[in-house]
Amino acid sequence: MKSALLICRKELNSYFASPIAYAVMALFALIFGFGFYTASRDFVRFSLQSQMMGQQQPMNVNEQIVRPLLGFASTIALFLIPMITMRLVAEEKRTGTIELLLTSPVKDSGIILGKWLGAVLLYLCVLGMSMINIALLFAWGKPDLKPVLIAYLGLILQGGCLLAIGTFISTTTKNQIVAGGVTFFVCLLLWLLSWFTAFDSTATAQVVNYLSIVTHFENFGKGVLDLKDVVFYLSMIFFALFLTLRSMESLRWRA
C-alpha cells in the first residue's frame, strides 16, 4: 500500500498548508483547556473543603478529573471531525484533481485508505493537544496511567470511526460545505441518540444504543477495555471505508 502512504502524506501536507489543521487544533486545545481548568479548579476546591471538614475520604484524580475530561474530549472531537473530513474527496471533485488520482495506476482502495489515514493522523495531532494538560496532571497528582491509556485508545477508535464516516460523506458531493454539514449532522444525531437511549430500555433503544458509535466509548472512558467495543469500532471503520470504496466506484458511473 505504497500509494496509501503517498496520499496520506499529501493529505497531511495540505492540511498543514491550509489553516484547517491549525484551526482544529487550536479550537480543541482551547475548549479542552477550558474543561481542564474548570475540572481541576473544582477538584482543588472540593479537596480543600473535604480536608477542612476533616473527612479522610481519598480524592481520586482519575475519577474526578481524567475520566470526565476525556469524556468531554470525545464530545469535542465529535464536532471537530466534520472539519477534518469535509474537504477530503469533495474538494478534489470540485477542482478536478480527482482526475489525477483516478487515472493514476493506483487502486481506489489505496486512495481511500490514504485519505482516511491522513485524517486520522491529523486527528492524532489534535488529540495530542490534550496531552499537554494531561501531562500537567501527571506532574502534579498521581493518576493511574492505565485507564488514561485506555481512554485514549477509545478516543482514537471512536475518532477513526467517525472519520471513516466523514470520508464516505465527502465522496458523495462536490461541495465541501455540504459534506461538512452532513457529517456534523450525523455526529450530532449520534450524540443526541446516546443521550436519549441512555434512559430508555426498550428493545429498539437497545439496538440503537448498541449501534451508536458514541456509547461504545463509555467503557473506554471508565478505563475498561472490552474486546467487544474494540471489535465494534474496527468493524465500523471497515464498513464505512468499504462504503466509501463503493461510493467512489459509483462516482465513476455517475460522473
Binding site: A17, T95, T97
Partner: peptide, 8 residues
C-alpha cells in the same frame, strides 16, 4: 482543467 493542487 489541469489537475493541480494550489497549495503545493
Amino acid at each position: 482543467t489541469p489537475p493541480l493542487y494550489p497549495e503545493m
